[in-house]
Design a protein around this nucleic acid. Sequence first.
DNA 1: CTTAATTTCGAAAACGTTTTCGTTTTTATT
DNA 2: AATAAAAACGAAAACGTTTTCGAAATTAAG
Lengths: 341, 341
Amino acid sequence: MPNVTLKKIADELGISIATASKALKGYPDISDATKKRVLDLAEKLNYRPNSFAQSLRSSESQIIGLIIPEITHDFFAKVIHGVITCAKSNGYAVIVLQSGDSYEKEKEQLGMLLDKNVDGVLISLSNNTKDIGHIKEIKSKGIPLVLYDRIYKLLDCSKVVINDKKAAYNATTHLIHTGCKKIAHIGGNLDPQTTIDRFLGYKAAIDDSDIEYDKSLVYIAKNLSFDDGYQIAEQMMKDHKDLDGIFALTDTIATGVLMKLKEMEVQIPEQISLIGFSNWFLTSVTTPKISTVNQPGFEMGCKAFDLLFKEIQAKKHGMLFEKEIVELPTELILRNSTKPL
Amino acid sequence: MPNVTLKKIADELGISIATASKALKGYPDISDATKKRVLDLAEKLNYRPNSFAQSLRSSESQIIGLIIPEITHDFFAKVIHGVITCAKSNGYAVIVLQSGDSYEKEKEQLGMLLDKNVDGVLISLSNNTKDIGHIKEIKSKGIPLVLYDRIYKLLDCSKVVINDKKAAYNATTHLIHTGCKKIAHIGGNLDPQTTIDRFLGYKAAIDDSDIEYDKSLVYIAKNLSFDDGYQIAEQMMKDHKDLDGIFALTDTIATGVLMKLKEMEVQIPEQISLIGFSNWFLTSVTTPKISTVNQPGFEMGCKAFDLLFKEIQAKKHGMLFEKEIVELPTELILRNSTKPL
DNA sequence: CTTAATTTCGAAAACGTTTTCGTTTTTATT
DNA sequence: AATAAAAACGAAAACGTTTTCGAAATTAAG
């Protein structure tokens, strides 16, 4: 029942705790003979160093914190997967927390991570985070921090992002090239940078074409949800009878739009072309399959851990660390909700 | 830069570390005056107890481990959500690990959790776990453990499950009641209990009807994947021209089947009725929407944590703990891939 | 004003590990 | 055989907290 400690091993072997510890760590001032004795006994007793003691001494937990807006999102699930995979291969465990897109929760979760003494934090800002005092607090404590996806541009730290504006530009431009003349955008409240940038990309594409930008074609989805898309689709059709293209901020919204449009017997893509964003699996099983922008969640998780890990190492060895901003490539995935070129 | 400790507070106030500690914990042998002084200073300095020291002393980490076969599954994502939510409201953090349905990884992850000294473990067995020595090892160390969803019946511990057999029975029976005469089942290799039970439910339903059980109608999906369903669908149609019902082990398989069947221009549900399992969101956006069995992932996660928490508490207070096996209700969700009654 | 009772506090050990630095033992050199 | 050098080990402190138990200070009782 009582756990096996260095003391137990030392006693059993008639040596000191210090020697046992050093033997296990391969110190050069321990003879090969005793090393073997210690190693063998440790193996036999299935000795596992007490991580609490190790952490107390080293002030390292070998644990990082990951804050996710919503776990049950295809994209974020992939991010988790990426982070966990890379973390594990570097000996780190990951505490996963969910902000539920609430600023208060986000702050609370960050507090919990502080309490647990994580070695670093990975965070994607909640859609409702405007004040970043809590983030700055983490930074001021010297805890390595990396932002991914939903970042805050003015914060001085490493970041992993995609080029939302460019991706949105490409998506919208594709709609234009396939003949769409009246393209709506369903966006979100102007908050996370991603939302702004995707709108900006949409607008830039319109401005670069010979289509006139029409403000009334930009709709706001409050919750970025399926239902939002479902409802807005109906409204859109009322407002603009001759609508022929839609670029939605997310795949869930796009899916909601598709459902409603099908109910209204609007032909897709013949009458209206539709593009979503993120490449959720579900966009490939609807009828028609929805064209979208691939957002590399797994890679983003990996890269984010990578940057964090480097920063942790740098801090540990007292070296200075250059913040990096990594931009991952996206890809326009053309399926059947858009017309062929 | 250096963290604020009890010592710092004590020094500042000219009292002992012991007094500071007791003041913060509300011990009765500290005067209200000093209590206030300590509390105020702690607040001012934003004191956070060092969790390493606390853990070392109490041998509690206030962290639990959660092992998931695949994070990027709607159902398991919901489970994670449930676990994290309930854990947080009880002051526990959750380290999430993924087994990727590999026995070796599962064992490795369990080792990592041991190394991190988690207070308890929640695990859903990988599809390829036959030997449960690693699980027994955890139990033998006295670490609280709860199995959820993919359980191992013979292991003596708390479990949270659904009644797979009953759910499968109801689903299959519904196919029969709506007039299906030749119903196929796409199952998996005979390993996790869930797979066996769903097949058993299917078979029981057939046996209880006046349909003859036909072994050739049972197909094996190796990876329980979309592609499996997609491929098997074609094979099935070759083998049985007059097939009129399919009960698939999972929603992904069912979705693959649906895609292929639509390509083959099979009318659903007119010619063939289809039921999946789990109620992934994606089944509600296909055309037709797929009927399925709702599997309460969030609730399962909550309940699993709940049981684990009780066991941790019991262990802590030296009380004995009665293993519980909780069965959560499922629900047949009828959509458009099945005929009306 | 003494003694007893009560309140308030602090010294110290313990949790298990790591690492510095000094001590002992062994081997090599004259 | 004496000394120097190298090899092998151990004592002890430190990480920061909690808690027991005894000591000191205060108040109450006689």
